[in-house]
Structures are given as C-alpha cells and as structure tokens.
Design a protein around this nucleic acid. Structure first.
Lengths: 152, 152
DNA sequence: AGTGAAATTCTCCGAAG
DNA sequence: CTTCGGAGAATTTCACT
C-alpha cells in the first residue's frame, strides 16, 4: 500500500495517543475530521495499523517479573511448531526465531520468580526444546512504542 | 492503588481496543459510561494505564529488520548510563538490564540490514561497551499485547 | 477531500447510597 | 466521602457536493 507523508504523521499521532479525536488529528495535519477517519480506516484495512491498545504498567496488575529465554531446539523443529507451542503459554508475550546461537527468543512475563520458574519448566518440557538460556530482566531502561520515521 | 475486578476487566477491554467507547465498555462491565470514565481517569492518574497507542506493523512503515543485542559492559557501568546511551539511538525500541552473562539486552529496529549494521556500530562505539552479541530476528512468532490476568 | 446534519458519545454537575 | 445517573457539549459518521 502507498503511504504518504500525511499518513505517516497521522500514524505518529495515533501512536502517541490512540484516543486522540479525528478533529484534533485533522487540525494537526491540515485535514478535516472525516478525511482523517477515511485514512485511518484505510490504514487499518491495509494492516498498517494493526489495532489500538492501552499501555499497561505490568507491575500494577501483578506481573512483576520479566525475562528473555533463548531456546535451543532439535534439528527438525519448524518455526510453526515453536509458534504453536509458545502461544499456548499465557506468560509468553513475544517470541521470535533468530539467527545466532539460539533458534528462538521468547519474551516472558510472570507474576513473580516462582511463577516464572513454573512457566520456564513448562516451556522446557516442550519436546523439541533441547536447552534454554535465560536472562531475567532487572530493570526496563527504555520502552518506546513503535517509532514512525518522520515524513521526508 | 487498589484495583478491583471491574478495573481489570476495563483494562483488558482497553488493551484489546483502546478506541472502544466508554458506553460500550460500560455495557460489558455493567456500568454507566461516566462511571467507566471515572475509573479510567483514575487508572491513568495512578500510572496503571500509561497511555494509549496505535499498534503499527513496522514493515509497513519501512522498518523491516529487527534484532536483539546483548551488551557486555565495563565493570563500572551503571544502568542509568546504559539508559541514557541507548535512548540516544532512535533504532532502540527497548532496553533492559539483565541477569546472566550479558549486562543489558537491547531491542533494535532498523530499515534494513545496512541500517542495522550502522546502528550496531554506533552502539558498539559507546565507551562502556566491551563487546556485543547479536540475534537477528528472522520471524515474529508471537506478539501479544500485555495480558491482564482475569479477575478472580 | 470538504461540508453539513443526524446519531452517538463524552463530560460535567447534581443526587444517592 | 466515594460512586452513579441525566443533560448540554463535543465527536463521530454518513450522504452529498
């Protein structure tokens, strides 16, 4: 899909505040509210904007422990298998196949260390996992939402 | 702050769709629209809800390459130093201090491999970085927004 | 893409538990 | 003292230009 500079500015404004009114966005990009809505609808339909979400402080809802786990898998493991398996665990908030030593990187969030240990144990029990290497998150230093490059 | 089950359900609904109307949320949690707004305002003020953002498909806005970089730092490096340094690079979308072999884990997003290489070079030039280990993301398998535990 | 209007939704202020 | 429901104000959303 073709995205012009106005689209990018609209996206950036929605990333900054997903509940901004169309009229407000329109005033910042010199467009009427209906014109903004049409563009947003088009961007959503095209999958450029996947949705709108509230950014929640995990600690405030009882998730205090975060970790990244590198997965080492058996030779025949497919990305689809890893995807299906990791999606089953509610503690998994993201998972990627990666190049490097490990085969996949899994981002976990748990209530506490005990809960994390449980989740890790379950993950390690997956038949294709040969070993894991964990990094516990001590502190979050940076956490930007997706940055949209400034229109040229 | 005290969060009850209704708050948690409101948070879950907003995570699923940050542009949902207060009236719609209210009908799902058996509350009037004004009552929902009061709660959301309170949750925002308390920092439980940090904000509302659009979820953008990075590839659609020209960011096609993603990677995780483990940072190994000199002995005297403080988390604050790493935070300040990593925040300077626009390619850094997240950074954490971690336990394990590495001192920090940096999540990078770049336009392409060449851009990623540049960003990595700049990151490695930070005076406290002794070495790095990179994982290039091959595919995103799972990408859930923050999951809110179901009210008990 | 803009304009105007109808329907919906937001947000303040008073009322009740 | 906190939480909820109703009325004016703003916003969304549609047809048409």
């Amino acid at each position: 899909m073709q995205i012009d500079g106005v689209d990018q500015r609209i996206i950036a404004l929605l990333v900054a505040d997903a509940r901004a009114s169309y009229a407000d966005i329109g005033s910042r990009v010199a467009l009427s509210a209906p014109a903004v809505k049409r563009r947003v609808d088009r961007l959503r339909a095209a999958g450029v904007i996947r949705g709108f979400t509230a950014v929640v402080e995990p600690a405030a809802v009882g998730w205090t422990t975060e970790s990244f786990v590198e997965l080492f898998c058996t030779g025949r493991t497919t990305p689809a298998q890893i995807a299906v398996a990791t999606r089953r665990h509610p503690e998994v908030i993201a998972a990627y196949t990666v190049s490097g030593e490990a085969d996949a990187l899994v981002h976990l969030r748990a209530a506490d260390i005990a809960h994390l240990e449980q989740a890790l144990e379950r993950l390690r029990a997956e038949p294709f996992v040969t070993s894991t290497r964990s990094m516990i998150v001590l502190s979050r230093l940076v956490d930007s939402p997706t940055v949209v490059p400034a229109p040229s």
